[in-house]
Design a protein around this nucleic acid. Structure first.
Lengths: 108, 108
DNA sequence: TTGTTACGTAGGAAAAAACCTACGTATAGT
DNA sequence: ACTATACGTAGGTTTTTTCCTACGTAACAA
């Protein structure tokens, strides 16, 4: 739910893979997701819990199945967090452009 | 250096705080950064190592000091990683807009 | 109702992360 | 040359994370 939870959730490759599967293949029951991993089903279930706590997935019960769907909204926080850093990598490009311009001026 | 390293580095609040300090206050020697933390200096040094391995900071030796500076470039990978998810939170907004449009049509 | 399927949770082992206090090394100042 | 400062690294402890197997529960199927 907090940005901290989201960063923590994204730190695991398995959890990022879960998000990718839900994004590319749509909502799925927990078991079908678990089949894709070289890992026990309960372990995948725990990863889903971490994602749930971060608000990145939500479940809908359909009979005995639990369908998980992607909830991308919390990722906006990550995006917002990145924003003030954009200036810095852009600056690098600007510096490079300026350098090239200077070289061009020398030629002229 | 890999995206995995970057995600891992960002998972720690202490390391995100280090990045923030470098961003807002500019390059600083390791000791001055460490002073800002309620943590031993060597522990901060280890966090800096994780950031270094992720390519998020770089050091320049100045006498006996080591000045750390922010290297924002690897954050672009995070940004790129987020891109395919944008569609999903935008969809939510679109759904809401459509719903409102429908209500409007009913009125008309 | 009895068995089967789809799950989450408990409890615990193993691995990784986070922290500490020494300690070593290089530079700067006297 | 001697002392102080600014760091990183070693080695070890504690905490957290990650994974497992075993078990409990609810829903469906016969």
């Amino acid at each position: 739910m907090t940005a901290d939870h989201v960063f923590t959730a994204l730190a695991s490759p398995a959890r990022r893979e879960l998000l990718r599967l839900l994004r590319e293949e749509g909502s799925q029951p927990a078991g079908r997701l678990a089949d894709r991993f070289d890992m026990s089903r309960p372990s995948v279930s725990e990863h889903l819990k971490v994602l749930r706590d971060a608000g990145l997935v939500a479940e809908t019960r359909k009979g005995r199945e639990r369908h998980y769907r992607l909830e991308a909204a919390p990722l906006m926080e990550i995006r917002d967090w990145l924003t003030p850093y954009e200036r810095f990598w852009r600056q690098k490009l600007t510096d490079l452009t300026d350098l090239l311009d200077d070289l061009e001026d020398d030629d002229a």
